[in-house]
Nucleic acid binder design. Structure first.
Lengths: 302, 302
DNA sequence: CAGATGCATAAGAATAAATTATCGCAAGCT
DNA sequence: AGCTTGCGATAATTTATTCTTATGCATCTG
């Protein structure tokens, strides 16, 4: 196939103007150029497309068909152009985020403000565990990820944008609840409720105990942060949790934060990018919302 | 805009194969050629369309859009190709005929056989008067015309294909009805019913009387052939009509043909073409049906 | 770390597309 | 008629585009 858009364009102009010369003017070309294009199109088609009686130019039956298709095709080309133009702005873009589950405690609010600012951007957020989030990112099914613990993968670039302090919580009646300056050693006597292996908070917890040469006693593994909260309130043990995740419970007095020396564990939330990926304008905008304003925005709302 | 179909083609292959190299194989091109086309398309679009992480090639959001349009556009191109292919055969073509009204007595039967042979060809027949038929032909709104009297117009080519004898008919009880060898002179005493001026049969009639130096007495002008037949049967006068138009009435004995010396007037039916028009296959086929078989076909049926 | 794979880049050859200049034909004019 | 004009076809040349070959650079694989 050696059909070209220019052939269709020229023929379309000729058909519309019923004249090669005027078509050429319209296209800012010379008349022979148009003639050549149309002739090539006729060769392509294998049929004459125009016929002339004296000065009057008519389309043959085949010409009418080709004209119909030419208009339709050129119309689609134009439509594509305007779709691309919209994509060049943020408007109408798409933002696909993956977040680790504990981000659920603040990410929706940030997406909310983003949506207020750019209502035309279609936002989707996929909340799962660490491993799945990373896969989504590497498979390019997501523009960026929000994680509490950046992987060491060299394909990936992590930018911290907010603190993510881990604290130890206890039920209000716990023997350490009212104590100040609890020593780390005292924690060895306690049982901790933990997430399943592979969770970010669990990893941070183990590292913390290891680094401080403490022995960690873990209770049952819990499926989610909220089940740990429930467990702590039910006196099954202590929990090491992101402070953001238990803000409400602390304010209501359902849980208390233990004032252990060396705590809270300083961690951060990271926005994680697939290195080399060119962000859409929408994604770029959301990234700077995270990096530049997340702290402020959440303080204002919480 | 300088978008080309080849760009879309290459990009489409790349998107489908998720690989430049394999796309190049599919298109029987070298890999750099494909890369160049895609890069040009990207420049056109003003946005990156693909992105790679290591070996994995993905489409950007804009790329997905362009891919969608590319498939649609290329699909239309293919569809156009097959429509043209059909037009190259007779099948699916179009046949537009204009005929002078008296052709109504045989033309429908010929179109009928044509339709039997080429059921896929859309046939339209426009029956009007001489002048309108010629206009339709010259305005190229019709592939060919059937007329009883070819115009002298040099833009037009007329081919006789069938005899069109004009006869004089009378009611069965007419004083000349049983006579043999009626002399022309005797017709001067008769009144003739005629069509409006401009009609082919009327023109032929006047010429015939003039050529034979006869005085013609005309009765009222009638709107159509059938009204003349009615008038003759009602004893309002004689009629000079194509024999084909009164075959039925002659057989039923409602009218009789006068056996005047020098009659019938020998005329022909002509298929008239716009000189220089390239006939479609369908039109060509119908023309040879007329020129080659019309007489035979009509004898068989009548 | 070597080999293989896959895309990018650069320079040259082959094609295609414009332009200018000119011809030919049919209409319209006087 | 014969002249002029408008419109498209054609030819030769210049200019752009589109390929190819050859090579480089990065990433994945064994």
């Amino acid at each position: 196939m050696h059909l070209t858009l220019r052939q269709l364009q020229c023929f379309s102009a000729v058909a519309r103007n019923r004249s090669f010369t005027r078509a050429a003017e319209e296209l800012h070309l010379t008349q022979p150029a148009v003639s050549m294009q149309v002739r090539q199109l006729e060769q392509q088609a294998g049929l004459p497309l125009t016929e002339q009686f004296g000065k009057q130019l008519h389309l043959t039956e085949a010409g009418e068909e080709v004209y119909r298709y030419a208009r339709s095709i050129l119309g689609e080309v134009e439509e594509m152009g305007s779709v691309l133009d919209r994509l060049k702005g943020i408007s109408g873009g798409r933002l696909r985020i993956a977040a680790i589950s504990s981000a659920n405690y603040f990410a929706p609010r940030l997406l909310g403000t983003f949506h207020e600012r750019f209502p035309d951007v279609g936002v989707s957020m996929n909340v799962t565990n660490q491993k799945a989030v990373l896969e989504l990112l590497l498979d390019n099914e997501v523009d960026m990820a929000i994680m509490g613990q950046p992987p060491r993968d060299s394909h990936v670039e992590a930018i911290p944008f907010m603190e993510n302090p881990l604290i130890i919580v206890a039920p209000p009646g716990h023997r350490l609840a009212k104590r100040k300056r609890i020593q780390l050693k005292e924690l060895e006597k306690e049982v901790f409720l933990v997430r399943e292996t592979g969770s970010g908070t669990r990893g941070a917890m183990e590292r913390f105990f290891r680094d401080n040469k403490l022995k960690l006693t873990t209770g049952m593994g819990m499926g989610s942060l909220s089940s740990i909260k429930q467990g702590v309130q039910a006196n099954l043990g202590l929990g090491l949790l992101p402070r953001d995740a238990v803000l409400v419970e602390l304010q209501l007095g359902h849980l208390v934060e233990l004032r252990v020396r060396g705590l809270p564990i300083r961690r951060h939330w990271y926005v994680v990018l697939h290195r080399g990926k060119r962000l859409s304008l929408a994604a770029e905008e959301f990234k700077s919302l995270l990096v530049g304003e997340a702290v402020e925005l959440l303080r204002g709302q919480a």
